[in-house]
Amino acid sequence: MNALETRELSKHYRDVAAIDDVSISLEENRVHGLLGRNGAGKTTLMKLLTAQIFATSGSMRVLGEDPVENAGVLSQTCFIQESQKYPDGFRPLDVMRISQGLYPAWDQELARDLVADFRLPEKRAIRKLSRGQLSAVGIIIGLASRAPLTFFDEPYLGLDAVARRLFFDRLLADYAEHPRTIVLSTHHIDEVSNLLEHVVLLDEGKVMLDEEADALQSAAIEVSGRLTEVDEFTTTAEVLHTARIGALATATIVADGEQTAAAARAAGLDVAPVSLQNYIVHRTTAAAPAAAR
């Protein structure tokens, strides 16, 4: 079953299409990556899916139903926003108390463990917390709510490397024991790439990629060698990026499974993998000039 589906979903602000004709399906009980540059429409899409704003056109199903004014669906959905606002005078303790009443599957023991792990001062006013501590509040709510559908929007702004690792490990451990649908939106792609099973890449409100993470991992390769040989090998390939130094060159090309790599090696070229992060960078920068034309 799909945890969520959108069909030709669009959200316009005057002349700007923040979300433009998006049709995606996210299978339940998997970790999905919602990736893209700043301003690509990630947050807008999540706000639509959690009925915080309304679509201009198109349709969507969240946990099988229309989420708009649907308390049943919304109590099964947890949306951790990057810029979550809290009422004046609220402390992390108050936020957790309210969340406990809001989410039927809330696990108080997990929340307590996470507060200790992140060393969160739970009795300090939220407006006095650092950016990292604020992110920790969101992470704790997102994990302890155990909502069947959880959105994390840039969950680790301001967190140091230790805390990011902690988030990662606790998310993995809890997800393994309590499978649920998780949508992770971030531009720190390399850090999360091993966690994702499926990736949706947005660019200027449109879906640019909608693929299994496995397939993306071998979707492109980098070939390098003598300029003439690289040129000859890449004439028939879809080239995403090239660089040259003197008589040497490297090219990032779209690969057709193992065959492309084998052919490159047979042609005497060196072959290196392309990380998800680099693949996406090349994809989004290669698209920019094409769109401007």
Binding site: R30, V31, F168, D169, L172, A173, Y175, A176, E177, N194, L195, L196, E197, A213, D214
Partner: peptide, 18 residues
């Protein structure tokens, strides 16, 4: 197990299972 591998290698359990 799948979950042990996933936690140790920091990868998705479905990938470890695969």
């Amino acid at each position: 197990s799948t979950n042990e591998l996933a936690a140790f290698l920091r990868i998705n359990p479905a990938t470890a299972g695969k």
